[in-house]
Design a protein around this nucleic acid. Structure first.
Length: 363
DNA sequence: TATGCGTGGTA
DNA sequence: TTACCAAGCAT
Protein backbone atom coordinates (compact mmCIF):
# COMPACT_ATOMS: atom_id res chain seq x y z
CA UNK A 1 0.00 0.00 0.00
CA UNK A 2 2.55 2.57 -1.14
CA UNK A 3 0.05 5.02 -2.54
CA UNK A 4 -1.75 5.71 0.69
CA UNK A 5 -1.41 5.83 4.47
CA UNK A 6 -4.28 3.65 5.75
CA UNK A 7 -4.32 5.34 9.17
CA UNK A 8 -4.79 8.79 7.70
CA UNK A 9 -7.38 7.56 5.22
CA UNK A 10 -9.33 5.78 7.97
CA UNK A 11 -9.30 8.88 10.16
CA UNK A 12 -10.67 11.17 7.44
CA UNK A 13 -13.20 8.68 6.11
CA UNK A 14 -14.58 7.78 9.55
CA UNK A 15 -14.79 11.39 10.67
CA UNK A 16 -16.87 12.15 7.58
CA UNK A 17 -19.02 9.05 8.15
CA UNK A 18 -19.65 9.93 11.80
CA UNK A 19 -20.91 13.34 10.77
CA UNK A 20 -22.77 12.49 7.56
CA UNK A 21 -24.07 8.93 7.64
CA UNK A 22 -27.70 8.40 6.69
CA UNK A 23 -30.20 7.32 9.30
CA UNK A 24 -31.23 3.95 7.85
CA UNK A 25 -33.58 1.47 9.58
CA UNK A 26 -31.01 -1.33 9.77
CA UNK A 27 -28.41 1.04 11.22
CA UNK A 28 -30.63 1.30 14.30
CA UNK A 29 -30.33 -2.45 14.84
CA UNK A 30 -27.62 -4.72 16.21
CA UNK A 31 -29.50 -7.98 15.71
CA UNK A 32 -27.39 -9.99 13.23
CA UNK A 33 -30.58 -11.44 11.74
CA UNK A 34 -31.82 -7.97 10.86
CA UNK A 35 -28.45 -6.96 9.41
CA UNK A 36 -28.50 -10.16 7.38
CA UNK A 37 -31.98 -9.52 5.95
CA UNK A 38 -31.05 -5.95 5.06
CA UNK A 39 -27.92 -7.10 3.23
CA UNK A 40 -29.85 -9.64 1.16
CA UNK A 41 -32.43 -7.03 0.20
CA UNK A 42 -29.71 -4.54 -0.69
CA UNK A 43 -28.07 -6.87 -3.21
CA UNK A 44 -28.31 -5.04 -6.54
CA UNK A 45 -31.08 -2.91 -5.09
CA UNK A 46 -31.12 0.73 -4.08
CA UNK A 47 -31.56 1.88 -0.50
CA UNK A 48 -34.74 3.86 -1.18
CA UNK A 49 -36.35 0.82 -2.78
CA UNK A 50 -35.39 -1.47 0.10
CA UNK A 51 -36.55 0.63 3.06
CA UNK A 52 -40.32 -0.02 2.86
CA UNK A 53 -39.75 -3.71 2.09
CA UNK A 54 -37.37 -4.03 5.02
CA UNK A 55 -39.84 -2.44 7.42
CA UNK A 56 -42.75 -4.60 6.26
CA UNK A 57 -40.58 -7.71 6.34
CA UNK A 58 -39.44 -7.00 9.90
CA UNK A 59 -42.97 -6.45 11.14
CA UNK A 60 -44.01 -9.75 9.52
CA UNK A 61 -40.91 -11.73 10.53
CA UNK A 62 -39.22 -9.98 13.49
CA UNK A 63 -37.05 -12.96 14.46
CA UNK A 64 -35.25 -15.94 12.96
CA UNK A 65 -37.95 -18.14 14.40
CA UNK A 66 -40.77 -16.15 12.80
CA UNK A 67 -39.21 -16.34 9.36
CA UNK A 68 -38.20 -19.98 9.78
CA UNK A 69 -41.77 -20.95 10.57
CA UNK A 70 -43.36 -18.93 7.74
CA UNK A 71 -44.70 -20.43 4.53
CA UNK A 72 -42.56 -19.91 1.46
CA UNK A 73 -45.57 -18.42 -0.30
CA UNK A 74 -45.91 -15.82 2.45
CA UNK A 75 -42.23 -14.96 2.20
CA UNK A 76 -42.45 -14.58 -1.57
CA UNK A 77 -45.52 -12.37 -1.16
CA UNK A 78 -43.50 -10.14 1.19
CA UNK A 79 -40.78 -10.00 -1.47
CA UNK A 80 -43.22 -9.27 -4.31
CA UNK A 81 -41.89 -6.43 -6.46
CA UNK A 82 -38.33 -6.50 -5.08
CA UNK A 83 -37.00 -8.77 -7.81
CA UNK A 84 -34.32 -11.47 -7.80
CA UNK A 85 -36.75 -13.76 -6.01
CA UNK A 86 -34.20 -16.50 -5.41
CA UNK A 87 -32.90 -14.15 -2.71
CA UNK A 88 -36.14 -14.65 -0.79
CA UNK A 89 -36.16 -18.41 -1.23
CA UNK A 90 -32.49 -18.75 -0.33
CA UNK A 91 -32.86 -16.47 2.69
CA UNK A 92 -35.86 -18.44 3.89
CA UNK A 93 -33.95 -21.69 3.46
CA UNK A 94 -30.87 -20.35 5.23
CA UNK A 95 -32.88 -18.93 8.11
CA UNK A 96 -34.49 -22.33 8.62
CA UNK A 97 -30.98 -23.79 8.66
CA UNK A 98 -29.92 -21.27 11.32
CA UNK A 99 -33.03 -22.02 13.35
CA UNK A 100 -32.45 -25.75 13.19
CA UNK A 101 -28.70 -26.22 13.44
CA UNK A 102 -27.42 -23.02 15.06
CA UNK A 103 -30.13 -22.71 17.72
CA UNK A 104 -31.52 -19.63 16.03
CA UNK A 105 -28.27 -17.67 16.40
CA UNK A 106 -26.64 -16.34 13.24
CA UNK A 107 -23.16 -17.88 13.11
CA UNK A 108 -20.16 -15.56 13.37
CA UNK A 109 -17.42 -17.65 11.79
CA UNK A 110 -16.44 -17.00 8.20
CA UNK A 111 -16.84 -20.64 7.27
CA UNK A 112 -20.33 -20.99 8.72
CA UNK A 113 -21.63 -17.67 7.42
CA UNK A 114 -20.41 -18.34 3.89
CA UNK A 115 -22.09 -21.74 3.94
CA UNK A 116 -25.54 -20.14 4.21
CA UNK A 117 -27.61 -20.12 1.02
CA UNK A 118 -27.59 -16.76 -0.70
CA UNK A 119 -24.59 -15.54 1.28
CA UNK A 120 -21.62 -14.99 -0.99
CA UNK A 121 -18.29 -13.23 -0.48
CA UNK A 122 -19.75 -9.73 -0.14
CA UNK A 123 -22.65 -10.59 2.16
CA UNK A 124 -20.47 -12.80 4.35
CA UNK A 125 -18.04 -9.93 4.81
CA UNK A 126 -20.89 -7.52 5.48
CA UNK A 127 -22.45 -9.73 8.15
CA UNK A 128 -19.11 -10.45 9.84
CA UNK A 129 -18.05 -6.81 9.90
CA UNK A 130 -21.35 -4.97 10.39
CA UNK A 131 -23.09 -7.40 12.74
CA UNK A 132 -20.08 -8.77 14.61
CA UNK A 133 -17.46 -6.04 14.14
CA UNK A 134 -14.98 -8.54 12.72
CA UNK A 135 -12.38 -7.16 10.27
CA UNK A 136 -13.45 -8.76 6.98
CA UNK A 137 -13.60 -7.35 3.46
CA UNK A 138 -17.10 -6.48 2.20
CA UNK A 139 -16.48 -5.75 -1.45
CA UNK A 140 -19.52 -4.54 -3.36
CA UNK A 141 -19.84 -2.28 -6.36
CA UNK A 142 -19.32 0.82 -4.24
CA UNK A 143 -16.13 -0.48 -2.69
CA UNK A 144 -14.70 -1.51 -6.06
CA UNK A 145 -15.51 1.90 -7.52
CA UNK A 146 -14.11 3.84 -4.58
CA UNK A 147 -10.91 1.84 -4.22
CA UNK A 148 -10.30 1.65 -7.95
CA UNK A 149 -10.24 5.45 -7.98
CA UNK A 150 -8.46 5.83 -4.68
CA UNK A 151 -5.56 3.64 -5.78
CA UNK A 152 -5.90 3.94 -9.57
CA UNK A 153 -6.65 0.26 -10.08
CA UNK A 154 -7.53 -0.47 -13.70
CA UNK A 155 -8.67 -4.09 -13.32
CA UNK A 156 -12.11 -4.69 -14.90
CA UNK A 157 -14.59 -4.75 -12.01
CA UNK A 158 -17.08 -6.74 -14.12
CA UNK A 159 -14.69 -9.70 -14.16
CA UNK A 160 -14.82 -12.24 -11.37
CA UNK A 161 -11.07 -12.54 -11.48
CA UNK A 162 -10.73 -8.97 -10.19
CA UNK A 163 -12.47 -9.72 -6.93
CA UNK A 164 -9.29 -11.03 -5.31
CA UNK A 165 -7.44 -7.76 -5.95
CA UNK A 166 -10.20 -5.68 -4.39
CA UNK A 167 -10.61 -7.94 -1.38
CA UNK A 168 -6.89 -7.71 -0.67
CA UNK A 169 -7.06 -3.95 -1.11
CA UNK A 170 -10.01 -3.72 1.27
CA UNK A 171 -8.15 -5.73 3.90
CA UNK A 172 -5.17 -3.41 3.69
CA UNK A 173 -7.37 -0.35 4.09
CA UNK A 174 -9.77 -1.55 6.78
CA UNK A 175 -9.71 -0.02 10.26
CA UNK A 176 -9.18 -2.99 12.57
CA UNK A 177 -10.67 -1.07 15.49
CA UNK A 178 -13.89 -0.09 13.71
CA UNK A 179 -14.46 -2.60 10.90
CA UNK A 180 -18.25 -2.22 11.01
CA UNK A 181 -18.19 1.55 10.61
CA UNK A 182 -15.29 1.47 8.17
CA UNK A 183 -16.95 -0.89 5.71
CA UNK A 184 -20.22 1.02 5.87
CA UNK A 185 -18.33 4.29 5.46
CA UNK A 186 -16.64 3.06 2.30
CA UNK A 187 -20.02 2.12 0.81
CA UNK A 188 -21.61 5.33 2.04
CA UNK A 189 -18.89 7.33 0.33
CA UNK A 190 -19.57 5.44 -2.90
CA UNK A 191 -23.31 6.07 -2.62
CA UNK A 192 -23.16 9.76 -1.72
CA UNK A 193 -19.85 11.22 -3.00
CA UNK A 194 -17.81 8.84 -5.15
CA UNK A 195 -20.73 8.15 -7.50
CA UNK A 196 -20.49 6.34 -10.84
CA UNK A 197 -21.08 9.53 -12.83
CA UNK A 198 -19.91 13.00 -11.86
CA UNK A 199 -18.21 12.11 -8.59
CA UNK A 200 -18.20 15.01 -6.12
CA UNK A 201 -14.44 15.15 -5.76
CA UNK A 202 -14.50 18.79 -4.60
CA UNK A 203 -16.30 17.93 -1.40
CA UNK A 204 -14.86 14.43 -0.98
CA UNK A 205 -13.50 13.94 2.55
CA UNK A 206 -10.65 11.76 1.27
CA UNK A 207 -9.77 13.57 -1.94
CA UNK A 208 -6.27 14.26 -0.64
CA UNK A 209 -5.63 10.52 -0.63
CA UNK A 210 -7.09 9.81 -4.08
CA UNK A 211 -4.81 8.79 -6.95
CA UNK A 212 -7.51 9.18 -9.61
CA UNK A 213 -8.18 12.71 -8.42
CA UNK A 214 -4.49 13.56 -8.48
CA UNK A 215 -4.16 12.19 -11.99
CA UNK A 216 -7.49 13.57 -13.21
CA UNK A 217 -8.77 10.14 -14.25
CA UNK A 218 -11.74 9.80 -11.91
CA UNK A 219 -14.10 9.71 -14.90
CA UNK A 220 -12.17 6.82 -16.45
CA UNK A 221 -12.48 4.61 -13.40
CA UNK A 222 -13.59 2.07 -12.58
CA UNK A 223 -13.00 0.05 -15.75
CA UNK A 224 -16.14 -1.98 -16.35
CA UNK A 225 -16.86 -4.06 -19.43
CA UNK A 226 -20.36 -3.90 -20.86
CA UNK A 227 -22.82 -6.74 -20.82
CA UNK A 228 -24.87 -7.84 -23.79
CA UNK A 229 -28.37 -6.43 -24.38
CA UNK A 230 -31.45 -8.50 -23.45
CA UNK A 231 -33.18 -10.72 -25.97
CA UNK A 232 -36.76 -10.10 -27.03
CA UNK A 233 -39.48 -12.62 -26.46
CA UNK A 234 -43.00 -12.22 -27.85
CA UNK A 235 -45.72 -14.00 -25.97
CA UNK A 236 -49.46 -14.35 -25.90
CA UNK A 237 -51.12 -14.22 -22.50
CA UNK A 238 -54.49 -15.63 -21.52
CA UNK A 239 -56.82 -13.63 -19.35
CA UNK A 240 -59.59 -16.19 -19.12
CA UNK A 241 -62.59 -16.19 -16.88
CA UNK A 242 -64.97 -19.07 -16.12
CA UNK A 243 -68.72 -18.91 -15.73
CA UNK A 244 -68.31 -17.69 -12.14
CA UNK A 245 -66.25 -14.71 -13.22
CA UNK A 246 -63.09 -16.21 -11.78
CA UNK A 247 -59.79 -15.79 -13.61
CA UNK A 248 -57.31 -18.56 -14.43
CA UNK A 249 -53.86 -18.32 -12.86
CA UNK A 250 -50.97 -20.75 -12.53
CA UNK A 251 -47.78 -21.08 -10.55
CA UNK A 252 -44.46 -20.83 -12.38
CA UNK A 253 -41.92 -23.67 -12.19
CA UNK A 254 -39.68 -24.16 -9.15
CA UNK A 255 -36.57 -22.98 -10.97
CA UNK A 256 -35.57 -20.30 -13.42
CA UNK A 257 -37.03 -16.88 -14.05
CA UNK A 258 -39.60 -15.76 -11.46
CA UNK A 259 -39.58 -19.25 -9.95
CA UNK A 260 -42.62 -20.16 -7.87
CA UNK A 261 -44.40 -16.91 -8.55
CA UNK A 262 -47.89 -16.84 -10.06
CA UNK A 263 -48.93 -15.66 -13.48
CA UNK A 264 -51.58 -15.84 -16.17
CA UNK A 265 -51.09 -18.78 -18.54
CA UNK A 266 -49.06 -17.76 -21.54
CA UNK A 267 -47.16 -19.13 -24.50
CA UNK A 268 -44.35 -17.91 -26.68
CA UNK A 269 -45.88 -16.44 -29.82
CA UNK A 270 -45.03 -18.53 -32.88
CA UNK A 271 -47.67 -17.23 -35.25
CA UNK A 272 -49.63 -14.04 -35.82
CA UNK A 273 -53.01 -15.69 -35.46
CA UNK A 274 -54.75 -17.26 -32.52
CA UNK A 275 -53.56 -20.83 -33.08
CA UNK A 276 -50.95 -20.53 -30.33
CA UNK A 277 -53.64 -19.53 -27.88
CA UNK A 278 -56.01 -22.24 -29.01
CA UNK A 279 -53.26 -24.76 -28.42
CA UNK A 280 -52.57 -23.36 -24.96
CA UNK A 281 -56.25 -23.68 -24.15
CA UNK A 282 -56.24 -27.30 -25.34
CA UNK A 283 -53.28 -28.06 -23.08
CA UNK A 284 -55.36 -26.79 -20.17
CA UNK A 285 -58.27 -29.02 -21.15
CA UNK A 286 -60.31 -26.07 -22.30
CA UNK A 287 -61.79 -24.92 -25.57
CA UNK A 288 -61.52 -21.17 -25.55
CA UNK A 289 -62.84 -18.22 -27.48
CA UNK A 290 -61.22 -14.84 -27.58
CA UNK A 291 -62.01 -11.24 -28.18
CA UNK A 292 -59.63 -10.44 -31.02
CA UNK A 293 -60.29 -6.80 -30.51
CA UNK A 294 -59.51 -5.54 -27.04
CA UNK A 295 -55.98 -6.94 -26.94
CA UNK A 296 -53.81 -5.39 -24.26
CA UNK A 297 -50.12 -4.90 -25.10
CA UNK A 298 -47.72 -5.03 -22.19
CA UNK A 299 -43.95 -4.73 -22.32
CA UNK A 300 -41.65 -5.69 -19.49
CA UNK A 301 -37.88 -5.44 -19.41
CA UNK A 302 -35.83 -7.83 -17.30
CA UNK A 303 -32.07 -7.67 -16.91
CA UNK A 304 -31.48 -10.27 -19.61
CA UNK A 305 -34.75 -10.57 -21.53
CA UNK A 306 -37.64 -8.41 -22.73
CA UNK A 307 -41.18 -9.70 -22.73
CA UNK A 308 -43.53 -8.26 -25.31
CA UNK A 309 -46.89 -9.57 -24.24
CA UNK A 310 -50.23 -9.57 -26.04
CA UNK A 311 -52.97 -10.14 -23.51
CA UNK A 312 -56.10 -11.75 -24.88
CA UNK A 313 -59.36 -11.67 -23.01
CA UNK A 314 -61.09 -14.99 -23.39
CA UNK A 315 -63.81 -17.21 -22.05
CA UNK A 316 -64.37 -20.90 -21.69
CA UNK A 317 -66.48 -22.28 -24.53
CA UNK A 318 -66.35 -25.82 -23.28
CA UNK A 319 -64.34 -28.19 -21.13
CA UNK A 320 -63.20 -30.84 -23.55
CA UNK A 321 -60.95 -32.64 -21.13
CA UNK A 322 -62.26 -32.53 -17.58
CA UNK A 323 -59.26 -34.46 -16.31
CA UNK A 324 -56.76 -31.91 -17.54
CA UNK A 325 -59.00 -29.12 -16.38
CA UNK A 326 -59.31 -30.45 -12.84
CA UNK A 327 -55.95 -32.05 -12.39
CA UNK A 328 -53.24 -29.59 -11.62
CA UNK A 329 -52.97 -27.87 -8.29
CA UNK A 330 -50.67 -25.41 -9.99
CA UNK A 331 -53.49 -23.98 -12.08
CA UNK A 332 -56.66 -22.66 -10.68
CA UNK A 333 -59.49 -20.26 -11.22
CA UNK A 334 -59.64 -17.65 -8.49
CA UNK A 335 -61.92 -14.71 -7.83
CA UNK A 336 -60.20 -11.60 -9.09
CA UNK A 337 -60.14 -9.99 -5.67
CA UNK A 338 -58.25 -13.02 -4.34
CA UNK A 339 -55.37 -12.49 -6.76
CA UNK A 340 -54.01 -10.21 -4.08
CA UNK A 341 -53.08 -13.22 -1.97
CA UNK A 342 -50.69 -14.66 -4.54
CA UNK A 343 -47.21 -13.34 -5.27
CA UNK A 344 -47.14 -11.96 -8.80
CA UNK A 345 -44.16 -10.55 -10.68
CA UNK A 346 -44.37 -6.94 -11.79
CA UNK A 347 -44.76 -8.08 -15.42
CA UNK A 348 -48.08 -9.68 -14.63
CA UNK A 349 -49.02 -7.00 -12.14
CA UNK A 350 -49.02 -4.69 -15.14
CA UNK A 351 -51.58 -6.96 -16.78
CA UNK A 352 -53.76 -6.85 -13.69
CA UNK A 353 -53.52 -3.08 -13.59
CA UNK A 354 -54.47 -2.85 -17.25
CA UNK A 355 -57.47 -5.10 -16.73
CA UNK A 356 -58.51 -3.16 -13.66
CA UNK A 357 -58.38 0.06 -15.63
CA UNK A 358 -60.72 -1.42 -18.22
CA UNK A 359 -63.08 -2.72 -15.58
CA UNK A 360 -62.42 -6.34 -16.45
CA UNK A 361 -61.35 -7.11 -12.93
CA UNK A 362 -62.08 -5.70 -9.54
CA UNK A 363 -60.25 -5.80 -6.26
C1' DT B 1 -15.44 -17.74 -16.09
C1' DA B 2 -19.82 -16.24 -18.16
C1' DT B 3 -24.47 -16.19 -17.82
C1' DG B 4 -29.10 -16.19 -15.64
C1' DC B 5 -31.55 -13.84 -12.41
C1' DG B 6 -35.82 -8.24 -11.35
C1' DT B 7 -36.96 -3.88 -10.67
C1' DG B 8 -36.97 1.10 -10.40
C1' DG B 9 -34.39 5.35 -10.87
C1' DT B 10 -31.72 8.60 -13.54
C1' DA B 11 -29.08 11.23 -17.23
C1' DT C 1 -35.84 6.60 -25.58
C1' DT C 2 -31.90 4.31 -24.61
C1' DA C 3 -28.40 3.00 -21.63
C1' DC C 4 -26.65 2.43 -17.44
C1' DC C 5 -26.75 1.74 -12.71
C1' DA C 6 -27.80 -0.36 -7.51
C1' DA C 7 -25.00 -2.86 -0.43
C1' DG C 8 -24.35 -10.01 -5.71
C1' DC C 9 -25.19 -14.99 -5.85
C1' DA C 10 -25.58 -19.61 -7.98
C1' DT C 11 -24.11 -22.49 -11.30
Amino acid sequence: MRKIKPEDFQRDLLQWYDENKRDLPWRRERDPYKIWVSEIMLQQTQVDTVIPYYQRFMSLFPTVKDLAEADEETVLKAWEGLGYYSRARNLHSAVKEVNNTYGGEVPSSEKDVKSLKGVGPYTAGAILSIAFNIPAPAVDGNVMRVTSRLLAIYDDIAKASSRKIFEETAMELIDKDRPSDFNQALMELGALICTPKNPACLICPVNEHCSARKEGVQDLLPVKSKKKPPKKMKMKVLLVKDENDRVLIERRPDTGLLAKLWQFPNIEAETDDLSDLKRLGESLGLTLEFEKENVQEVKHVFSHVVWEMEVYKGFVKSVHNAELYEESALKQFVATEDINYYPFPVSHQKIIDGALAKGEMYK
